[in-house]
Amino acid sequence: MRAALTRYRVIAWVVGVVLILLVVIGMPLKYGFDNPVVVETVGQAHGFLYMVYLVAAFDLSRRADWPLKRMILVMLAGTVPFVSFWAERRVSALVTAEQREREAAPEPIAG
């Protein structure tokens, strides 16, 4: 669980940074200065990195036994510039709190 959370946090940070590069630098360059090189390179990379993000978020949601709605919200949060960082922090806090709760009251049956 902890490893899955770390994987999720790393890729969430990377995707968030790449998305901001795309929106803050790439888009103005392409549409303002007619220089699409940043959008062409970073845009492609962002698509594939977002796939990795989806897989990491899915893996985490499966291990943490989230409801479908939360999983989808977390996945969508990765597509919003700047909000993705806030979402990553909230997810981390949530997963850590749930895990602490679980450790405080160990269940008798191994799952």
């Binding site: 062409e40 845009g43 492609q44 698509g47 594939f48 796939m51 989806l54 899915f58 479908l68 999983m71």
Partner: peptide
């Protein structure tokens, strides 16, 4: 030419939707 990459990415996202739906 850059659209070839996006042309690959979109079907993968579609497949992922089907995967999550099927799992549910």
């Amino acid at each position: 030419a850059i659209s070839w990459g996006y042309a690959v990415e979109w079907p993968i996202f579609a497949g992922f939707v089907v995967f999550v739906w099927w799992r549910e």
